[in-house]
Design a protein around this nucleic acid. Sequence first.
DNA 1: TCAAAAGTGTTCACCGTACACCCATGG
DNA 2: CCATGGGTGTACGGTGAACACTTTTGA
Lengths: 240, 240
Amino acid sequence: MNKLINKKKKVQLHRYSKEDKVLVAVDCIIFGFDKEGLKILLIKRDFEPKKGEWSLMGGFLKRQETLNDAANRVLKKLTGLEEVYMEQLLSYSEIDRDPEERTLSVAFFALINIANYDLKLNKENAAQWFSLAEAPTPIFDHQQMINEALVTLKRKALSKPIGFELLPNKFTMRQLQNLYESILSQKLDKRNFISKINALKILTRLEEKDKSTSKKGAYLYQFDEEKYHLKKEDGFSFRI
Amino acid sequence: MNKLINKKKKVQLHRYSKEDKVLVAVDCIIFGFDKEGLKILLIKRDFEPKKGEWSLMGGFLKRQETLNDAANRVLKKLTGLEEVYMEQLLSYSEIDRDPEERTLSVAFFALINIANYDLKLNKENAAQWFSLAEAPTPIFDHQQMINEALVTLKRKALSKPIGFELLPNKFTMRQLQNLYESILSQKLDKRNFISKINALKILTRLEEKDKSTSKKGAYLYQFDEEKYHLKKEDGFSFRI
DNA sequence: TCAAAAGTGTTCACCGTACACCCATGG
DNA sequence: CCATGGGTGTACGGTGAACACTTTTGA
């Protein structure tokens, strides 16, 4: 802490002191998934400018935190969740992207399981899940961030197994397939999908069945977390 | 311009004014290619801290420019080149990454044709091309940036045609194959490589031959720029 | 004439894709 | 008993990978 104070005092003496400083924000594109498909979490902004409009959840980078720290802080404030899968995307720097003041924003994307998300928090933050097709147009360049995040999500889904972060602990093959179909915006063949997933050997089939959607009942599966993460780090072999 | 001045005057009144501001830098990972293989351009830093050590070419973001503007300005200062292929990578934000002062850095990667690069500029900027294996360890987190840029470069080479930006206007198949082998760090089969490239229909074979590396001479090729860029925007079909 | 690089096709294994029927059960 | 979703296998075509010989010509 003393170190930090010393740093502050020194600011005027720094060799970089003639350089401009800017506000840096993080904005989180939060994807979730439920029986209706892929969704995104937006909040109704409660401060100016653009108060009352829909926005990604964001916050300003503080002097003593990294971008990842800031993104996790923001995500925790909105969802109460920690240790969520999150990844940095691009930075956005158009001069007037925020009409209030020049702000650089670093986009992050997060995948969360909607069931883990506490609905009470929705009210505190005026947050709401939207299906992609039905989401309102958000402020600033947030729509562009979302579009670019979707491209990244599709690319990931096509080259790596995905789903662990978005699905409940136990899920049916049909749910996993629905997730892929939502992300890719296309129908997949049931038999081919299942054999590709099985070939990865990342799932454990349980004895238990989910009878909520059929009379016969569908086997529940779990990800084998270790094998799953190994596959994710692997080469580029996986293709849906 | 008046608008800018007004903005500056308003700064103290801004609703965001209690937020921290930080220095933002851009750092360019500049890849080139010549007969010895894939190379990277580093400069000998001429100011403190770390004066005299090797570094990526970088600069601070100015208030009235975007990140892309800044990266292009930096690249032009170093190479004299404009309209170079450049792409934003990730941002780096560890608190002490620059010991002088808290600085956020946004990495860019650029592909340039070494032959277009003016050697005189090398001396002005104390810049030097290094083969990847022989490059000195650069300052701060620049090695991490380079490593992550290489991953991106490999991924791109595996999914899209690449080379237009790195090769001279006219080149032989062997040169193109050498480029791919450099990027991927692996030998490729000549016959398979050529048939895959030809299948893309992005090259035009000229009548002209290059006799500098063999007695028989090798046909020179040119990229068909239009078809090349179409393929680059295409789906994910290309595989080396 | 020979060394050194250029140029050219075929075969095989595997993977992606298309496709259809039976099963189990609650109502 | 039947409607509804669940579960399973096979055949075909295309693509990636392995592989070797002939051509050209300057030295």
